[in-house]
Design a protein around this nucleic acid. Structure first.
Length: 221
DNA sequence: TGCCAGGCCGGGT
DNA sequence: ACCCGGCATGGC
C-alpha cells in the first residue's frame, strides 16, 4: 500500500468517525491568528477564557491590541498561561500586522503565502507551527500544520520517525496528499481531535484510539 | 495531586 | 546543529 493511500484512508476514517470539524474556532481571521499564538503549548479551553476576556473588553481588534499596554494585556490573557511571554508575542505579531499590512488580512494574504511565511518566522514568538496555522486557518493557504499530536500519533504508529524534524513531517504530508486547503484544514483538525479526546497520554502503550482509526492502521502494518 | 496542554526562545555545548 | 531550562494557568 502506498503512503498516499494510507494517509487518505486514515483521513477518511477519522472524518467518518468524528464528522466534519469546520476549523478553526474563531469569528474572524484576526481572532484565529491571536488564538494561534495563545494556544502555544496550551489547551484550547484555557485559550477560550483569554479570548473571551479580550472580547468582553472589546479589545480583539488590531488597533486595540496595537495600542494597549503590554502589562494590561498580560493580565487579560492570564488564563491562557505564559501570559507575560504571550503578551509580548501578541504585541510583536500585531505590530508586524499593523506596520507591514495596515492591519488588513486582505493585504497580508494577497500572495501565495511563501514570502509571508518567512516574514512570520521573523516575528519573535512565531515558530513553524504558529506560522502554518496562521497561513492555513486565517489565510486559507495550503500549508500543512504539524503539531505535538501529529508527531506523537504518527510516530507511535511507525508512519514517521520519532525524531523527524518539523519540516520532515510536513514534507511527509505534503508529498503524499493533494495540496488542498480544505483537506489540510480538515486533516489537521481531525488529528487534534483524535489527540484531544482519546490519545493525550504519553504512554507509548496507549490503546485508547478509536476503533475505526486503529483498524486502518493495523491493516497496513 | 501531580501531570499535561494545538510551542518557542535564548543560552549553552 | 542540537539540547535544555524557562515560561504558567486550569482541568482531570
Amino acid at each position: 500500500m502506498q503512503k498516499r493511500d494510507i494517509l487518505l484512508k486514515i483521513y477518511n476514517s477519522l472524518h467518518d468517525y468524528f464528522g466534519p470539524l469546520n476549523w478553526w474556532p474563531g469569528d474572524t481571521p484576526f481572532e484565529v491568528m491571536v488564538g494561534a499564538i495563545l494556544t502555544q503549548n496550551t489547551s484550547w479551553n484555557n485559550v477560550e477564557k483569554a479570548i473571551n476576556n479580550l472580547k468582553k473588553e472589546n479589545l480583539l481588534k488590531p488597533l486595540k491590541l496595537y495600542t494597549i499596554n503590554q502589562e494590561e494585556l498580560a493580565q487579560l490573557i492570564k488564563p491562557s498561561g505564559y501570559y507575560n511571554i504571550k503578551a509580548r508575542r501578541l504585541k510583536n505579531f500585531v505590530t508586524f500586522f499593523i506596520e507591514d499590512f495596515e492591519g488588513s488580512t486582505e493585504k497580508m494574504f494577497s500572495g501565495d503565502g511563501g514570502e509571508l511565511r518567512k516574514k512570520l518566522l521573523n516575528v519573535n514568538g512565531i515558530g513553524p507551527e504558529t506560522a502554518d496555522s496562521v497561513l492555513l486557518y486565517a489565510g486559507r493557504k495550503p500549508f500543512f500544520v504539524v503539531d505535538a499530536y501529529t508527531r506523537r500519533i504518527f510516530s507511535r504508529h511507525k508512519l514517521i520517525s520519532k525524531d523527524s524534524t518539523y519540516y520532515e513531517i510536513q514534507e511527509f504530508f505534503i508529498k503524499n496528499l493533494d495540496r488542498d486547503v480544505k483537506l489540510f484544514n480538515e486533516f489537521h483538525a481531525q488529528i487534534v481531535m483524535l489527540g484531544k479526546t482519546i490519545c493525550t497520554s504519553r504512554n507509548p502503550n496507549c490503546a485508547k484510539c478509536p476503533i475505526a482509526f486503529l483498524h486502518v492502521i493495523y491493516q497496513m502494518i
